[in-house]
Design a binder for these strands. Structure first.
Length: 640
DNA sequence: GTAGGGTTAG
């Protein structure tokens, strides 16, 4: 009965009744057919019913009788193979169609071509493409798209050129595919002008692909230019620009466009929310992130979105929320685990991070090179030199991952933190890959903590060779020379800086209060409450001095410039932001600050003492790591 | 039959 009702429903479906009113053979009673035409009818019916086993049998009988069906029927059968992942059956259909000198039409060959691409059998697709007597725009586009997806960009572009040479005119499908293969601006500009000439720039697929690739190449103005041509749009076009801005650290603009998107009547989807969360992450907007979380609940099965939510909570320093999300995730992948492990480690919960790494392994999830980075980071922060060294040395054997530059960086950090500077520099010389400026900066960080001036000079010189624009390192080097009365060297460093037009980026701190971001810059009095902030800051410093606070003017191993050294130490942007936070937020609320440059030693002591005398919690996120201050202690263990 | 957008580190 069930089978009959199923058949009825198939028979009455609009596509079938309109296109081919075949009689259906009852299931289970199919034997050898009486005639060629009934063989073909049966095959057709099985194809449309998506009954793959019977269709394959029928096809076999047809082949023995030299019968072929029409292209549409074969395309139905291929759809069925694709839906079931039936690679071998798909190949059999291909062989069947090409048997005995058959000459299938380009339309049908394209279907096989596309099948091989979807099965990820690029060589087979290429072989078939080479044999085609005639190739149309669909054939070419299928190959271009296949090579683009395989990240074989040169090959994709080469196919476009061959296609053009053969006089085949690309369509919007071709352009939206090939745009993703552009890895240089000159290619992209050429393609863009060709798209305009072809009148295809208003196609939403082409527009979103253009916006996306301009963003990926860091050409945000060009991306916005395409977006702002108010012609046609859909939610993907919006998502492309919002995603592009969020990924290029223009979170502000991404959030503005998110608002405009909603006003324009395009409801945000998973992709939109993922980008919005990324923008919140970049700007450390915990409160806005919490609001977005409410919308995320609608998509609780979306792994990527939940990973972005998790990361937002980690990067905003709210590990309780992160833990809440993590434990409730319906599915976890290596990114979820890695995000949480690194999040715990960066926020000062190293032992929890290592415990979680154990749970990850117990769950059967396979760590990748980023997971290991989080693990090494955790070890270095908990002072677990032996564990870190063990993981570093055995990562290849245990997880099949070769240590990369970043892994070396973590271990240099680990050795440096433990005061093993000799071993750290030895490791740098032994690295399989060339050390970069980040590697040397890591060593420099260790030199600062352990006050190793000679090695600091060496590291700083290496940094400047690799990154001659690094203002902080010039200043630090000049401070070291000044302290050793090496005035000629001081003059030389200053002269180089001047000649190269290098100026230190002013320190800036941001704090979110009442859903608004307040920015504080050293020496800038533009905040409306600046007088009150300065007054309170002075009172606070006075009180802190009562409990032993002495402004740390030892700038030798710090990248502080002249005017930042003494008096203006008191007006460092994070101090202003902390005081503003204390004025604006109730005592039980955590003061969360994001900084553009590393925190200085004096501000670090300042923040620690405040949390001791005021029962406050302060979280400061600098470009590298987090500082959770509570009861006069910082999660970084005074090493950063 | 061929096409576009989202997550971990750096």
């Amino acid at each position: 009965m069930k089978a009959i009702s199923k058949l009825k429903s198939i028979k009455s479906s609009p596509t079938l009744s309109l296109s081919r009113p075949h009689s259906l053979a009852p299931i289970g009673s199919w034997n050898l057919p009486a005639s060629s035409s009934s063989l073909l009818d049966d095959f057709t019916n099985f194809c449309y019913r998506r009954d793959l086993p019977r269709a394959m049998k029928a096809m076999d009988a047809m082949q023995r009788n030299g019968i072929w069906a029409d292209s549409i029927t074969y395309s139905e059968l291929i759809k069925c193979c694709l839906a079931r992942g039936a690679v071998e059956e798909g190949k059999l259909v291909h062989n069947h169609v090409f048997a005995h000198g058959n000459e299938p039409k380009t339309f049908l060959i394209n279907i096989f071509l596309s099948m091989y691409v979807k099965f990820n059998l690029l060589d087979e697709a290429q072989a078939l493409f080479d044999q085609m007597p005639e190739r149309n725009v669909v054939s070419w586009t299928t190959m271009i798209s296949a090579y683009t997806n395989a990240k074989l960009n040169d090959k994709a572009l080469e196919f476009l050129i061959m296609m053009l040479r053969q006089g085949v005119v690309p369509n919007m499908f071709t352009f939206s595919s090939v745009l993703r293969a552009c890895d240089g601006l000159s290619n992209l500009r050429q393609l863009h002008s060709r798209i305009i000439k072809a009148g295809l720039e208003y196609d939403v697929f082409v527009r979103s692909a253009l916006i996306d690739i301009y963003s990926k190449l860091g050409e945000l103005q060009a991306a916005l230019g395409v977006f702002n041509e108010v012609v046609s749009g859909d939610s993907v076009v919006w998502n492309s620009i919002i995603g592009g801005l969020a990924q290029n650290s223009d979170g502000d603009e991404a959030l503005n466009l998110y608002k405009s998107m909603k006003i324009s009547g395009f409801p945000p989807d998973q992709s939109t929310l993922t980008s919005v969360l990324r923008a919140c992450t970049g700007l450390a907007l915990l409160e806005l992130g919490r609001q977005v979380h409410v919308h995320v609940l609608k998509f609780d099965r979306d792994l990527i979105l939940n990973n972005a939510l998790l990361d937002m909570y980690c990067k905003c320093g709210s590990m309780d929320d992160a833990n809440f999300v993590f434990t409730r995730m319906l599915e976890k992948d290596v990114i979820s685990w890695s995000t949480m492990i690194a999040g715990l480690a960066q926020n000062g919960f190293s032992r929890e991070a290592l415990k979680l790494f154990q749970s990850m392994k117990d769950s059967g999830a396979k760590p990748n090179h980023i997971t290991i980075l989080g693990v090494l980071f955790a070890c270095s922060h908990a002072g677990l030199v032996e564990d870190g060294w063990y993981y570093f040395q055995s990562m290849k054997k245990l997880f099949g991952i070769n240590p990369g530059r970043e892994h070396y960086g973590c271990i240099i950090d680990l050795l440096g933190r433990a005061g093993k500077l000799d071993q750290a520099i030895k490791l740098i010389h032994q690295m399989e890959c060339e050390p970069d400026a980040v590697t040397w900066r890591t060593l420099l960080g260790a030199c600062r903590v352990h006050r190793n001036v000679d090695l600091a000079i060496h590291a700083a010189k290496q940094i400047l060779k690799l990154d001659p624009e690094d203002a902080g390192t010039y200043i630090l080097l000049s401070n070291i020379y000044a302290n050793s009365q090496r005035w000629d060297d001081v003059t030389e460093v200053r002269r180089t800086m001047k000649a190269r037009g290098i100026r230190k980026e002013p320190g800036c701190s941001w704090i979110e209060v009442s859903k608004k971001i307040h920015a504080f810059i050293l020496g800038d009095n533009s905040h409306p409450q600046t007088d009150e902030i300065n007054k309170q800051l002075n009172q606070l410093i006075h009180r802190l001095m009562g409990v032993g606070y002495v402004p740390d003017t030892n700038f030798v191993l710090q990248d502080l410039e002249g005017e930042q050294r003494e008096d203006s130490l008191r007006y460092h942007s994070e101090k202003l932001a902390i005081v503003f936070g204390m004025m604006s937020l109730s005592r039980e609320k955590t003061i969360r600050i994001k900084k553009n440059i590393r925190i200085c030693g004096d501000c670090h002591i300042f923040a620690k003492l405040i949390t001791k005398i005021e029962q406050r919690t302060i979280v400061i996120r600098d470009p590298i790591r987090y500082h959770h201050f509570l009861d006069g202690v910082c999660s970084c263990g005074d090493y950063w």
